[in-house]
Computed example of a mutant assay.
Amino acid sequence: MDFDNEMTSYSPGDIVYVFYRNPHTQDVANIQEAAVVNNPENPNELAIFLYETYYPLTNEIAVYSSEEEAKAAYDYYFESM
């Protein structure tokens, strides 16, 4: 299955969906809703705001524009294990 996860054109205020690993149980991942915001450390860059923390929006983060797309990717990557 091919999930196109190239950085789409996101804007501050967009809602996206990401995989979030529980910091206490690394083998547990969930789909979480997050907001795209201006990075407070570099206002010219975008960040993901999730659980009161800013994460730079880079190609290293699996970001999905819909919950359905995130669920399909989650099922593919985690349910097939």
Results as ranks from 00 to 15, higher is better:
residue 1 M to H: 11
residue 2 D to N: 12
residue 4 D to S: 14
residue 4 D to E: 12
residue 4 D to R: 09
residue 5 N to Y: 01
residue 5 N to R: 09
residue 6 E to H: 14
residue 6 E to R: 14
residue 8 T to C: 10
residue 9 S to D: 14
residue 9 S to F: 09
residue 9 S to C: 09
residue 10 Y to C: 07
residue 10 Y to L: 14
residue 11 S to C: 10
residue 12 P to L: 08
residue 12 P to A: 11
residue 13 G to N: 06
residue 13 G to M: 07
residue 13 G to A: 10
residue 14 D to A: 06
residue 14 D to Q: 01
residue 17 Y to D: 01
residue 17 Y to S: 01
residue 17 Y to T: 03
residue 19 F to P: 02
residue 20 Y to P: 00
residue 21 R to D: 04
residue 21 R to Y: 13
residue 23 P to G: 10
residue 23 P to D: 09
residue 25 T to L: 13
residue 25 T to Q: 15
residue 26 Q to C: 12
residue 26 Q to E: 14
residue 27 D to A: 10
residue 28 V to T: 11
residue 28 V to F: 11
residue 28 V to R: 08
residue 28 V to Q: 13
residue 32 Q to N: 08
residue 33 E to C: 07
residue 33 E to Q: 15
residue 34 A to T: 05
residue 34 A to E: 00
residue 35 A to S: 14
residue 36 V to L: 00
residue 37 V to Q: 05
residue 37 V to R: 11
residue 37 V to Y: 00
residue 38 N to A: 09
residue 38 N to I: 03
residue 39 N to F: 09
residue 42 N to H: 07
residue 42 N to F: 03
residue 42 N to W: 04
residue 44 N to V: 09
residue 44 N to Y: 08
residue 44 N to R: 15
residue 44 N to F: 08
residue 45 E to N: 10
residue 46 L to T: 00
residue 46 L to I: 03
residue 47 A to V: 02
residue 47 A to N: 03
residue 47 A to F: 05
residue 48 I to F: 06
residue 48 I to R: 04
residue 48 I to K: 02
residue 50 L to P: 06
residue 51 Y to K: 14
residue 52 E to D: 14
residue 53 T to E: 15
residue 54 Y to L: 06
residue 54 Y to R: 04
residue 55 Y to H: 13
residue 55 Y to Q: 06
residue 57 L to K: 03
residue 57 L to C: 07
residue 58 T to W: 04
residue 58 T to S: 15
residue 59 N to R: 11
residue 59 N to H: 10
residue 60 E to M: 10
residue 60 E to N: 13
residue 61 I to Q: 07
residue 62 A to S: 11
residue 63 V to C: 05
residue 63 V to S: 01
residue 64 Y to A: 06
residue 64 Y to K: 01
residue 64 Y to I: 01
residue 66 S to L: 04
residue 67 E to H: 11
residue 67 E to F: 09
residue 68 E to G: 08
residue 70 A to W: 03
residue 70 A to D: 03
residue 70 A to S: 02
residue 71 K to S: 09
residue 72 A to Y: 04
residue 72 A to K: 06
residue 73 A to K: 03
residue 74 Y to P: 04
residue 76 Y to H: 14
residue 76 Y to L: 05
residue 79 E to R: 13
residue 79 E to G: 06
residue 81 M to S: 11
